[in-house]
Amino acid sequence: MFYKFIQTIDRFRPFLKAKAHCDVPCGIYDPITAQINALTAVRMMDLMNGLAEGDEKSRVDFHNSISRYIAVKEEHAEKAKHEIRVIWGDFIKDAHVEKYPELPALVHKIMQFGSKSRQTADRDAGLAFVDAINQFAEIFWAIKDIKIKRAKAPYAPALEMVYPDL
């Protein structure tokens, strides 16, 4: 309860942060976290659009649900961006960029689609966000020399995702 209260204040007026970070690389990097977060943003867009098509827009419940969907969309789109930035900053090395010169533009694109997914409920922006992160995942697994497979996520919005084929 108290945590929730502090967290709410933090959302509106962020507190300072202190890192308890791991410097010895733990080596645990996986774009799936970003992929799932981007997928969640699209799911929230779908829920918002579904609700907006209903007839109960004047009800308090409607506003409550929409507010919650927006909050989750914001949070998850930002988390997806964060996860990509971590892999970009901590895992990707110059040699990888030399081998995959499209990487910097791709990461930049992910940041932009992520922002658009936060700013709007534009499903196309959300789809582009997921797609760009899938492309990033494809390169990530190629760098690790791990085969990939494409399959639909086993939950709504059931978009095609890139998974390592282990």
């Binding site: 502090i6 507190f15 942060k17 308890a20």
Partner: peptide, 22 residues
């Protein structure tokens, strides 16, 4: 007094990323 948010795992499992400290 200040409230500060913890990021990173170095103090886990006692302090987790997202915890706050006074």
């Amino acid at each position: 007094l200040k409230i500060i948010k913890v990021t990173g795992n170095s103090l886990s499992p006692f302090f987790l990323p997202g915890d706050y400290v006074l």
